[in-house]
């Protein structure tokens, strides 16, 4: 029996597979497709202080080996999440990570204050990288100084809960952003968020998305994600959570070999809604393929030329 447990940033997960924000709802939508208690963690849909209606339709488009989205953080607000969703989640068994979206440093602080008072919230993930709302996260995510300030503010209000900063790849040097998060006191960074993209419909001569621009995710971005995780792992000493195009246990191991403590599975949840559970089932077999029975031994063992 291979031990899949991972421990980092004060979190103890039964395996390194976490579902990514925005692709797994509040978890409950998937409870018929697998036992949520089997997941390493669930990052819930991005939460804001007040409910948000999100962007106009259409706001998703399928692209080769991926998809674009410009949902715009539609969510019922943090209070509704705490009241209606969190009590139904198996938070004693599976780490429930709250993804936070805000437009200003004080708002991020307030949101962190609300969420960190909840026993059922295992960690906070700071969305400084959502490219969809023009006045929002993109400003923070592309400026290391802002990343550090937001991290400091959230950390101050986190009441000791681990703070994970989710980084955008839409920058010149993502390692500098990771460094800024570390300097601000982040317990971990997660990367990458979506790559800014666009799709065009030649029949209507319009952008496919009403928002014009959207975030690209899915297997198409995995090479970019691997590169970013590699660069960040070499730069910072805090744990790194790898995200980007993971659809299989093999994909997950690729990120772990680079040094990732855990991974998040996003667009793969749309391939079929039980895909994250299948990846967990498959992990031991993939580890044997990589000639190891220990995630600790595999982690960061990339052989560079």
């Amino acid at each position: 029996m291979i031990d899949l447990r991972v421990e980092f940033a004060g979190l103890v997960l039964k395996n390194p597979i976490i579902t990514a924000s925005g692709t797994f709802g509040f978890g409950l939508e998937f409870s018929s497709f697998g036992d949520l208690k089997r997941l390493g963690g669930i990052v819930v849909k991005g939460l804001s202080l007040k409910p948000r209606e999100g962007n106009p339709m259409p706001r998703v488009a399928e692209t080769p080996c991926g998809m674009l989205n410009a949902i715009g953080i539609q969510n019922p607000g943090v209070e509704a999440f705490l009241r209606d969703k969190l009590p139904l989640l198996p938070w004693r068994e599976t780490a429930i990570i709250a993804n936070m979206y805000a437009c200003t440093v004080p708002e991020f602080g307030e949101l962190a204050g609300v969420l960190s008072g909840e026993e059922g919230v295992a960690a906070l993930e700071v969305n400084v990288s959502c490219p969809n709302v023009t006045h929002g996260g993109a400003v923070f995510g592309q400026d290391p100084t802002q990343i550090r300030k937001v991290t400091e503010e959230v950390k101050k209000r986190a009441k000791g809960k681990p703070v994970i900063v989710k980084l955008s790849p839409n920058v010149t040097d993502i390692a500098l952003c990771a460094q800024a998060a570390e300097d601000g006191g982040a317990d971990a960074v997660s990367l990458i968020n979506t790559l800014l993209g666009m799709a065009v419909d030649i029949r209507t001569r319009k952008p496919t998305l009403a928002n014009v621009l959207g975030g690209l995710s899915g297997p198409a971005i995995k090479p970019v994600a691997l590169r970013c995780v590699h660069q960040v792992c070499r730069k910072v000493s805090i744990p790194v959570i790898g995200i980007g195009g993971i659809v299989s246990a093999e994909d997950a191991l690729e990120f772990i070999l680079l040094g990732a403590a855990a991974v998040q599975v996003g667009t793969a949840n749309f391939l079929r809604p039980d895909q994250s559970f299948r990846i967990i089932d498959d992990l031991p077999r993939a580890m044997i393929k990589a000639h190891s029975d220990s995630l600790g031994e595999l982690r960061g063992s990339l052989k560079l030329p």
């Binding site: 692709t23 706001r59 998703v60 399928e62 989205n69 749309f270």
Partner: peptide
């Protein structure tokens, strides 16, 4: 995309 209420694309 998902059909189960998660992606908010529809």
């Amino acid at each position: 995309a998902c059909g189960v209420g998660a992606c908010l694309g529809c």
